[in-house]
Simulated assay, not measured.
Amino acid sequence: MTNKHLTIGTLSRMTATKVETIRFYEKSGLLAKPARTEGNYRSYAPADLNRLSFIRRARDLGFSLDQIRVLLDLADDRSRSCEAVDEIAKEHLAEVERKIADLKALQRELDRLLSQCRCGTVAECRIIETLSPLPLEVN
């Protein structure tokens, strides 16, 4: 496949990325504008497949588009120190750890609320009461 060019549909299927998302990545500069066929269809090279796969994997891991943009720029210059890559990864790890802490706090709160459930009526439900900033009016 080294000399084969890919259509946007093929690229989409190979990376499990919606066509609209691929176009968005092009517009935002994460993917280069592809070559065009004589019929004006997009024509992608294997390098585009690799780049899109990188973007997809980074998005799956929760990296922001701005972080991905910087990572791609760094990856394009293979001779650079990876110190900047490490900094982005450390920043992202800190964000992941904050989210985990938030989710654990949520888990504890939900456990607490569920332990108070007496399986009565909704009018007596502690979960509904906790979620409601003001008492719900009954009509």
Rank of each mutant, 00 (worst) to 15 (best):
V122H: 09
A35P: 01
A84H: 12
R69E: 15
S28D: 10
D102N: 15
D102V: 11
E109M: 15
A47G: 03
S64R: 06
G9V: 03
I128T: 08
S79D: 11
Y44M: 01
A16E: 14
R69D: 15
D76I: 09
N40E: 04
C119G: 06
Q116Y: 08
L134G: 00
G39W: 02
Q67A: 13
D76M: 11
A16P: 01
R51W: 05
R57F: 08
L131T: 01
Q67D: 15
L106H: 06
S64I: 09
A84T: 15
T15P: 02
T17G: 01
C125T: 09
S115G: 13
R112Q: 14
V138H: 09
P46E: 14
I100Y: 10
T21G: 01
A94W: 03
K90S: 08
D48E: 03
Q116W: 07
T10S: 12
H5F: 12
S81Y: 06
K27C: 02
P46D: 08
G9F: 05
R23F: 03
S53L: 14
A45S: 11
L136G: 05
R23A: 05
S53A: 12
M14T: 06
R108N: 13
T121G: 09
I55A: 03
R23T: 09
I68P: 00
S12C: 05
L71T: 06
S79T: 15
L52W: 02
Q116P: 02
T37P: 03
D76V: 08
K27R: 14
L110I: 15
